[in-house]
Nucleic acid binder design. Structure first.
Length: 575
RNA sequence: GGUCCCGUGGUGCAGUUUGGAGUGCACGCCGGCCUGUCAAGCCGGAGGUCGCGGGUUCAAAUCCCGUCGGGACCGCCA
């Protein structure tokens, strides 16, 4: 039907007769016998010169046959990749007529209410931005598959209908027709199955896996999302990181044309201590500065009793942050868990302007300025609390103040390793798992599991890109005895473990290889590589925050008969 | 569950602070003119439940209360 794509015509094609198909974009009519048509397909736009366009309208679908020719002197359009040529002597076949679109099918739609874009997503997708994102995503998917397969991984599909495992995220449930009153759950991830694939001798598995979690939607979260899910047997942590790094770097290269350097590693402790976050954005400085020694013998009460005092220096922030903004920062700090926030404006010769300056000795003030390398005009923000709280509060402020937009480079990948095995304690005083209960404890710390569990590190790791958590993984426990030690710590008896995870635990009594794996979010990776703030921009048919699809209206009520078939009856709506 | 922001012809906005006739701008749409434009240009025209409901007032897009929808964030996401 066509010989070329709109966007590929160049000077080389001059003199050839071509047929191009696409949608009518802008028309410029100059009387009855001359009109310029911008014909658009996914590849770009080509100007066609036609003898009258009276019967053409925006978004009509046409096939245009004509001759490629250089544009006349002085009419070249450098804003267009095809701007040196045009298609002349055109014959136009109208393949479909179109109602006027509800919004312009070009970059101006970036400003249009997103609900309208989602309601008419098929029109939105015609735009260059969306086609670029879809194609970038496809390139990333393809590169990942290639990288995994080169490394000996095979793709295996796992069930979408699986038993409910109430730990973790809220699940989507699917009522069973053949077993009335029972439900399948849609997978939050293929976690359990991929480990069973290892027991099954698959050795290296991967899957572009759709995962579903019934949690509130955000800019970086949809109900359904895609993960590169992978697991490998007989591997060290370093090998797993290498496999995944290769996939990510290959994906990045496919997306932006340049392969990033080696991905650096940072321990969880360092990430928290230096950046106040386990997903640090390394694109900018403003690192947390250790100030506890500076105030070791201070008279200032709020500092004297604190386990950890740290600060961040906001270069030039003194003028930038008036009282209103400082109040807002204080509020934000409290929201993040701090008792309060100490701010100081740095004046000439290290003079400090602050409500608390009068409580600090001259030595303390001088040491503070020197520890933070503060200069006149800077703003210092100090928090004093437990180590973790101090770090996290300052990390929140650091991001709020300094974090660049997504589309601003460079790309800073970092592996966060040596996560703590447990984070906090539940109400009955039991440690809570940081990753999941099948995560392998760090071999150097395993002796302290019972005596000092909170100090035990795990073989869990996260991949972080520009402050976004792309995904996480771990080496797993393959020995039933060690697994039961962990369950004991979590307060799960052998009987309860059997009841909750039986189908998963029994296989490990039949000879399980040491194994470990990883999963990371394709949507987030693609969004960052595409320079998009929101993963909805890299998903063909996403849902808004309410979860209601404005195009399909899903979710919808169903027929009474369907409910009866499933043995279900609806309760009256909650008041 | 919570905090903050937004809602005005098909689209994007101004108007809301300080109440006074649906008042305006740009794009789009319809008709006319126009032979080198590319945000084409010129002339004319159509198009409105100011999200919805209630209240205050002589009078509400504007003030108050409620509600619906959207977004960002917190909670939540082992």
């Amino acid at each position: 039907m066509r010989t070329h794509l709109c966007g590929e015509l160049r000077q080389d094609h001059a003199g050839t007769t071509v047929s191009v198909c696409g949608w009518v974009g802008r028309r410029r009519e100059h009387g009855e016998h001359l009109a310029f048509i911008d014909l658009r397909d996914h590849s770009g736009i080509i100007q066609c010169v036609v003898d009258g366009a009276a019967d053409l309208r925006s978004e009509y679908v046409v096939r245009i046959t004509g001759t490629v020719r250089p544009r006349p002197e002085g009419t070249v359009n450098n804003a267009l990749a095809t701007g040196e040529v045009e298609v002349g002597d055109c014959t136009v076949d109208i393949l479909s007529v179109a109602a006027p679109p509800p919004f312009p099918i070009d970059e101006r739609a970036d400003q249009v209410d997103e609900m309208i874009r989602l309601k008419y997503r098929y029109l939105d997708l015609r735009r260059e931005r969306m086609q670029r994102n879809l194609r970038l995503r496809a390139a990333v998917n393809s590169a990942i598959r290639g990288a995994m397969e080169r490394q000996g991984f095979i793709e295996v599909e796992t069930p979408m209908l699986m038993p409910s495992t109430p730990e973790g995220a809220r699940e989507f449930l699917v009522p069973s027709r053949q077993v009335p009153g029972s439900f399948y759950a849609l997978p939050q991830s293929p976690q359990l199955f991929k480990q069973l694939l290892m027991v099954g001798g698959t050795d290296r598995y991967y899957q572009m896996a759709r995962c579903l979690r019934d949690e509130d939607l955000r800019a970086d979260r949809q109900y359904e999302f895609m993960q590169l899910d992978a697991e490998a047997s007989f591997v060290t942590e370093a090998e797993v990181l290498e496999f995944i790094s290769e996939a990510v770097l290959a994906a990045a290269e496919a997306a932006v044309g340049e392969r990033p350097g080696e991905i650096e590693q940072m321990t969880w402790h360092d990430a928290i201590d230096r950046f106040g976050s386990d997903k640090p954005d390394l694109r900018f400085g403003m690192e947390l500065v250790e100030l506890t020694p500076v105030f070791a013998s201070t008279e200032f009460k709020a500092f004297a009793s604190a386990a950890a005092i740290k600060g961040i220096r906001v270069p030039g922030g003194s003028a930038q942050f008036g009282r209103n903004k400082l109040d807002a920062l204080t509020e934000r700090a409290k929201q993040a868990g701090a008792q309060g926030l100490v701010w100081m404006r740095v004046g000439d010769a290290g003079a400090l302007e602050s409500p608390v300056a009068k409580f600090l000795s001259t030595t303390e003030q001088a040491d503070l300025v020197s520890a933070t390398a503060a200069e006149a005009g800077d703003l210092l923000l100090l928090v004093a609390d437990e180590w973790m709280t101090t770090c996290e509060v300052l990390g929140t402020l650091r991001n709020d103040i300094g974090r660049p937009p997504v589309h601003e480079g460079p790309y800073r990948y970092v592996w966060i390793v040596d996560f703590p095995m447990f984070v906090g304690r539940s109400e009955d005083g039991r440690p809570k798992p940081g990753h999941h209960p099948f995560t392998r404890p760090h071999p150097e710390d395993v002796d302290r599991l019972e005596s000092d569990p909170m100090s035990v590190r795990s073989k869990a790791y996260d991949l972080v890109l520009n402050g976004w958590e792309l995904g996480s993984g771990s080496l797993r426990i393959h020995e039933p005895e060690l697994q039961q030690r962990i369950f004991d710590l979590l307060g799960i008896s052998p009987e309860e473990a059997q009841r909750r995870f039986g189908f998963f635990l029994t296989p490990f009594t039949y000879g399980a290889p040491p194994h470990g794996g990883f999963a990371f979010g394709i949507d987030r990776l693609v969004a960052i590589l595409a320079g998009e703030e929101n993963i909805r921009e890299v998903i063909a048919f996403p849902k808004p925050q309410s979860g209601v699809d404005p195009m399909t209206q899903a979710p919808t009520p169903v027929e009474e008969a369907q409910l009866r078939d499933l043995g279900l009856r609806l309760l009256p709506p909650r008041p």
